[in-house]
Design a binder for these strands. Structure first.
Lengths: 173, 173
DNA sequence: CTGATGTTTCAATAATTTTTGAACCTACGC
DNA sequence: GCGTAGGTTCAAAAATTATTGAAACATCAG
């Protein structure tokens, strides 16, 4: 029932025991959590990013887990998310086993990648769907007003798809 | 236990019985639900908007509830949300008791209002917080790299706040 | 007023999303 | 190869968010 206390941990593996977050770290995390929330990014991911953001050097897996007090699973998934969206970089020293992480230089670029990954697929998937809907209401002889609305929606979607590569340039360009 | 069947409803109040959604209506709803999801807007709200969007005239409370098959509570809250974000208008005929709803003319303006309401408060609230964080890390003598990052974040936030009124103009301007 | 219609509120429930942790991989140094 | 540090997976639990529906409220016609 009672887990071994931090201090009396066995000899074999001196459980490092990390500092709890400092108030400025918490405050920054709150900021990132809030912003992330708008885009539907989970709290744990935002916390990891915030920690890396205020840290002087790159941090490894165990430090992140220790300082944030979250589970391995969350850290692993969070890092995966941040990696996939090109928001962090691994800095592996030669001869070292573990990876260490830091934010990519540009937060702006990171946000663009994030937006891209959310919005673009939706726009692409919508295209044929919207065209079908428009065709349907035309066939069914709907009011001109409704047809006009749906036409406009279609045009918007097309334009957004054309513009997307410019506004949200893909990583390799 | 057994509710009175649709057809055999009592004389007094001929329960109207609304048509189920047609396939093109469902498809459009899916589109709006998807897009709304990106901004964290709940499904029921998106469905209401979609229905009004493909409907020829304004719809009243009962029609919305009936055709979408959702509860009174959801319809009420959904309409409140859409009203608050200026995404729908009520068209009450004189002498009529119930309100009837239709989308505002510009979906673009609606989206702007929505974004505004999500992003602006976050930016405003963040301002003092970010400044405190920056002050703290300076006082604590952090690495120049970290200080630089946080300075940049601060500048961004300030600029975003300045620009916001231009990009996301408030309703009355 | 009064009664009925139309709408809102909100506590309870349902649905969804996030987090956890233990089992399971994987690759590297030996 | 072998053992193990380092990390991933994923089913179950916890936390959060959305929906329901019955009761309360508001407003208008009579």
């Amino acid at each position: 029932m009672k887990p071994p206390s931090e201090k009396s941990a066995g000899r074999r593996k001196s459980r490092p025991s990390f500092e709890p977050l400092q108030s400025h770290e918490i405050e920054l995390a709150d900021f990132f959590v809030r912003m992330a929330g708008i885009l539907g990014v989970p709290r744990s991911v935002a916390e990891i990013y915030a920690l890396l953001y205020v840290s002087s050097g790159p941090l490894d897996f165990d430090h992140i887990q220790g300082r944030l007090g979250m589970s391995k699973g969350s850290v692993s998934q969070g890092l995966k998310f941040l990696r996939d969206h090109e928001m962090i970089l691994s800095v592996k020293e030669k001869g070292a086993r573990r990876e260490r992480w830091q934010p990519t230089p540009s937060l702006a670029a990171s946000l663009v990648a994030l937006l891209r990954s959310q919005v673009l697929p939706a726009l692409e998937q919508a295209q044929p769907s919207l065209q079908r809907v428009l065709a349907d209401v035309q066939k069914l002889g709907a009011q001109p007003e409704v047809i006009e609305r749906l036409s406009r929606l279609n045009r918007w979607n097309s334009r957004a798809l054309e513009l997307a590569p410019l506004l949200l340039p893909p990583p390799g360009a």
